[in-house]
Design a protein around this nucleic acid. Structure first.
Length: 584
RNA sequence: UGGCCCGUCGUCUAACGGCAGGACGUCAGCCUUUGGAGCUGAUUAUCUAGGUUCGAAUCCUGGCGGGCCAGCCA
C-alpha cells in the first residue's frame, strides 16, 4: 500500500507527553478524550481532533474516551449522539468500554459544588444576567463585586439546595465561583458554575432543574476519568486558568489541558451555525450532501476513512492558526485511492465517433486490466468495441491549441486498449455545433500498439455507443468560489457559493461492467477522476456515481497558464498604448 | 491605558542554545497504452530592532503583524 499511514511525525503535544513520561507526572499513562457536545454533526475539523486524541492513545498504548459533553439540554439530542458514535467508528477508532456522558456525573458535580460553597469558594448570586454582565467590567476595566458576594456559607448552602429543589424560577439565581472581579483574565471574574433551567435532559429527564456550566463540568469530568492530557482548541486557552483553579480548590486529580489550533480549510465553512443554515435554506441536499465537509457528507461523497486520517496526519498539529489549502484533502484521497481502486472507462460528455472503415455488423471485445500498473492484482474485464463509439467532447478540438495532444482533424490518437484512429471529417448541425466525428481505424494497431513502432501523443478513453450504459453521474466540486467566504465582513458568505459545486452529467455513458457496480464501491474513471457508487440513490442495475475528486490534471494547468499569460499580455498592451497616448 | 497565545520555504510542519530538515507545491529531466501513477534532480524560509552567549529560529526586552476573551453556550 503506497499510501500506508506512516508513523505520525512529532509535534508539540507529543513533546509534552514525552516530557511527562520522562518526569513521571502521570506514571507513564496516556489517557485522552474526545468530548463532543451532541448538538450537531461531526465535520472535518472534528476529524482532526479525533485523529489526534485517538492517535495519541494508540501510539502511546493508552486509551481515548468518548465523552458527550451534554450539559446544555436545550440544544442537545439523542440523534446527534448516535450519528457521532457512528462517524467516529467509521473513521476507524474504538473507545472500547470507555463511553461516558458528562450528565452521568451530575450527582458528583453537585457534591463538588457543595464542597466549593463550604470552602467559601462559591456563592449564590441573585443578579440578573444583564446585571452580571454590567458588573463584569470590560477588557480594560475591572469588574464590581455583586452585592450577594458576601453571603454566609450557610445561606449559600440553603439557597443552592433550594435551586436544586426547584424553589426558584429559571434564571433567577446562579451559582458563581468566588475568585476575583478585578482579574485581568475575564474568565476568572467570578464565573457562573450552575444555572437554573427547567428543560428535559435527553438522558436525565426531569431529574434536574439546575445544570452545570462547561468550565465546571469539563475539568471535573476529566479528573473523574483520570484523563492525563485534555486536548482542546486554542479558544480555551483563557479557560485553562479556571480549569486549574477548580481542580486545585477541590484538591482532586489534575490532568494537563493542552490547546492546539483548530482546522481552517480554504473554500469551505466549518461553523455549526453556517452548516445548519446551508442545510435549512436548501443550498445543499442535507447534512450528508457530498459537498458538505461533515463526516456524513464526506462518506456520501466517497472519501475513505484512511484518506481522512491521512489528511489529518499530513496537516500536522500546532498552535499557529493556519489555513489549509483544499488541495491537501484532495491529494490525500487520491493517494489513498490510487493503489486501491479498479480503472474503468466512462464518457461523461460524449460526442459520437463513427469509424468509416469498420464493418457495420462487426463487434469485438478487448480484454482490459482493471489495474494496469499491476494487471494480476485486480484481474480484467471485456470491453466491447464497434463502429460507433463515444469519446469525451473536450478530447477533440477542431483547431487544436498549442500542446493539445488529443483528437483533431487529421490527427491520430490511441483509443485505450483498442486501436489507433485518425479523424477525417467533422460533421456539424445547422447551428454549426459538432455532432459527429468521422474517423478511420488502423487494424494493425489492435490492442493499442503500432507494429511499425510509430507513436501517438494522446490516448483517449471511450465507450461503445451500442453497448455503453447510460448512468447518473454527478460531479462535485468545492462549495465556495473563494478561499475564505467569511473574510469580507460586509458580505454574506453565501454570496460566494459555487453555482457549479454540483454538476449532473445527463449524457454520461459508461462501459457495460459498470451497470452492475455495487453500491459503496469506488472506481477510477480513467483520465476523469475517482467515483463512488452512491449507497442511497443507487438501485440494483442502476448505479449512481458521485465524483469524489478529479485526477491531477496537467492539461488544465496548461490551459490556465495560457489564460493567465494572455491576460497579462493584454494588460501590458493596454498599458503601452496608454503610455504612447500620454506621450503624444 | 487589560490578559493570554502565535509569527520558520509558496503551503503545512521539524529542529527544546550547536550544520535550518521533511512533506506537498513549483521547475527541469526520465518513464508511461491514464496529460494519472512512478523515478531523478533543482528551487525557495527563521516578522523586526536590540540584548544575553564562544554560539540564538530557540532565552530576555521593545516594536510590528495575526488570533482569542466581556454567554446563565461549548
Amino acid at each position: 500500500m503506497a499510501a500506508a499511514e506512516t508513523p505520525a511525525p512529532t509535534n508539540f503535544i507529543r513533546n509534552i507527553i514525552d516530557e511527562h513520561n520522562k518526569n513521571g507526572r502521570f506514571d507513564g499513562r496516556v489517557v485522552t478524550r474526545f468530548p463532543p457536545e451532541p448538538n450537531g454533526y461531526l465535520h472535518i475539523g472534528h476529524a482532526k481532533s479525533i485523529c489526534l486524541n485517538f492517535g495519541l492513545a494508540r501510539d502511546y498504548q493508552g486509551r481515548c474516551h468518548l465523552r458527550f459533553d451534554d450539559t446544555n439540554p436545550a440544544k442537545e439530542e439523542q440523534e446527534y449522539i448516535d450519528s457521532i458514535m457512528d462517524d467516529v467508528r467509521w473513521l476507524g477508532f474504538d473507545w472500547g468500554e470507555h463511553l461516558y456522558y458528562a450528565s452521568n456525573y451530575f450527582d458528583q458535580l453537585y457534591e463538588f459544588a457543595l464542597k466549593l460553597i463550604r470552602g467559601g469558594k462559591a456563592y449564590v448570586d441573585d443578579l440578573s444576567a444583564e446585571e452580571i454582565r454590567a458588573h463584569r467590567g470590560t477588557l480594560t476595566e475591572p469588574g464590581k463585586d455583586s452585592p450577594y458576594r458576601g453571603r454566609s456559607v450557610e445561606e449559600n448552602l440553603e439557597l443552592f439546595t433550594g435551586m436544586k429543589d426547584g424553589q426558584f424560577p429559571d434564571g433567577s439565581r446562579v451559582l458563581r465561583a468566588k475568585i476575583d472581579m478585578a482579574h485581568p483574565n475575564l474568565v476568572m471574574r467570578d464565573p457562573t458554575l450552575y444555572r437554573i433551567r427547567r428543560v428535559i435532559h435527553h438522558r436525565t429527564g426531569d431529574k434536574w432543574c439546575i445544570y452545570p456550566m462547561y468550565d465546571f463540568t469539563h475539568c471535573i469530568s476529566d479528573s473523574i476519568e483520570q484523563i492525563t492530557h485534555s486536548i482542546c482548541t486554542l479558544e480555551f486557552e483563557d479557560n485553562r486558568a479556571l480549569y486549574d483553579w477548580v481542580l486545585n480548590q477541590l484538591e482532586v486529580y489534575h490532568p494537563q489541558q493542552i490547546e492546539f489550533a483548530r482546522l481552517n480549510l480554504e473554500f469551505a465553512v466549518m461553523s455549526k451555525r453556517k452548516l445548519l443554515e446551508l442545510v435549512k435554506d436548501g443550498h445543499v441536499d442535507g447534512w450528508d450532501d457530498p459537498r458538505m465537509l461533515t463526516i456524513r457528507g464526506m462518506r456520501r461523497r466517497g472519501f475513505t476513512p484512511a484518506s481522512v486520517r491521512l489528511f489529518c496526519e499530513r496537516i500536522g498539529v500546532g498552535k499557529k492558526e493556519s489555513w489549509i489549502d483544499m488541495y491537501w484533502l484532495e491529494k490525500a484521497v487520491r493517494d489513498d485511492l490510487n493503489p486501491k481502486v479498479p480503472r474503468v472507462m466512462g464518457v461523461l460528455d460524449p460526442i459520437k465517433v463513427v469509424l468509416t472503415n469498420y464493418p457495420e455488423d462487426q463487434e469485438e471485445f478487448f480484454e482490459a486490466p482493471f489495474f494496469p500498473d499491476d494487471p494480476p492484482a485486480m484481474g480484467s474485464r471485456k470491453v466491447p468495441f464497434c463502429r460507433e463509439l463515444l469519446v469525451e467532447r473536450d478530447d477533440f478540438m477542431e483547431v487544436p491549441a498549442k500542446k493539445f495532444w488529443r483528437l483533431a482533424p487529421g490527427r491520430e490518437v490511441r483509443l485505450r486498449w483498442a486501436y489507433f484512429i485518425t479523424c477525417d471529417e467533422v460533421i456539424k448541425d445547422a447551428d454549426g455545433n459538432i455532432v459527429e466525428l468521422r474517423c478511420t481505424y488502423d487494424p494493425a494497431t489492435k490492442g493499442g500498439d503500432a507494429p511499425d513502432g510509430r507513436k501517438v501523443k494522446g490516448t483517449l478513453h471511450w465507450v461503445s455507443a451500442r453497448h455503453g450504459v447510460p448512468a447518473t453521474v454527478r460531479l462535485y466540486d468545492r462549495l465556495f468560489t473563494v478561499p475564505n467566504p467569511d473574510a469580507d465582513k460586509t458580505r454574506d458568505y453565501k454570496e460566494f457559493l459555487n453555482p457549479e459545486s454540483r454538476v449532473d452529467m445527463p449524457g454520461a455513458v459508461l462501459e457495460p461492467v459498470l451497470a452492475e457496480a455495487e453500491p459503496d464501491t469506488r472506481y477510477q474513471f480513467e483520465r476523469k477522476g475517482y467515483f463512488y457508487v452512491d449507497p442511497a440513490d443507487s438501485a440494483p442495475g442502476k448505479p449512481v456515481f458521485n465524483r469524489i475528486v478529479t485526477l491531477r490534471d496537467s492539461w488544465a494547468k496548461i490551459v490556465e497558464a495560457a489564460k493567465r499569460e494572455a491576460a497579462a499580455q493584454a494588460r501590458a498592451a493596454k498599458k503601452k498604448k496608454k503610455q504612447q497616448k500620454n506621450k503624444g
